[in-house]
Design a binder for these strands. Structure first.
Lengths: 109, 109
DNA sequence: ACTATTCATCGTAATATTGCAATATAAAGT
DNA sequence: ACTTTATATTGCAATATTACGATGAATAGT
């Protein structure tokens, strides 16, 4: 039904999924990679860089910001976005906590 | 329009997003965690464990399998699923490649 | 052969996501 | 004040995802 049964899962699972979902779109990855590359911050160069409409980019930025992955600083008429350091490390930790849970032992079915 | 403009992004970005999307649902995380915990393999205990309909679980398993994260072995009437070791390490690598790209330097806007 | 069990697939309904144009807001320059 | 520039928000339309019941296929036990 398009609706996720969040009630069936733990908070951790729901939060993890929410985070992973942000990575689940190439535009948002491209935005992140652009920010990582430009090192310093950015605003709406993304529009010409990515080839998506301005409103679409803005929407993706909003989701990245809501997830806490980036933060934006108003800088005159424009907004400068950059990685949110704390969240970035938290994510790295959370994902690796999952990745490192395998393998416990070896053989399988 | 609900359709992703994959043509605008690199293969790597599209593939990464595709992978991340699989983690973007708590049911699939719960399935993975159950497999990780049970260490050995599983089949349809997931249905009673998670509380979702059998067809729903099956669908999620299919997506996990399509992404290559798990693999299934037919075992009589039932199917035993387990982590796909290679893919698991590949994912760990890919995600950490991204995570480790920050920080290059320090100050931001 | 018949039945029960296990899983996959199909069809469908409800909701979410993606994308864009149009419009709104807000600061900066003139 | 007026215009330009930069970004956010709103209102769609198209497509994707999630979930379930019903049905199908395959094996195991009787």
């Amino acid at each position: 039904m398009g609706i996720t049964r969040s009630d069936l899962f733990t908070d951790k699972q729901n939060e993890f999924a929410q985070l992973a979902k942000v990575f689940g779109h190439p535009a948002r990855l491209a935005i992140l990679e652009f920010i990582l590359k430009s090192n310093s911050c950015i605003c709406g160069d993304l529009v010409e860089e990515l080839g998506l409409a301005q409103s679409t980019i803005s929407q993706h930025l909003k989701e990245l910001k809501n997830a806490g992955i980036i933060k934006g600083n108003i800088e005159g008429a424009s907004v400068c976005y950059c990685i949110n350091e704390e969240k970035w490390y938290e994510m790295k930790l959370i994902f690796n906590e999952l990745f490192d849970r395998y393998p416990n032992s070896k053989d399988c079915c």
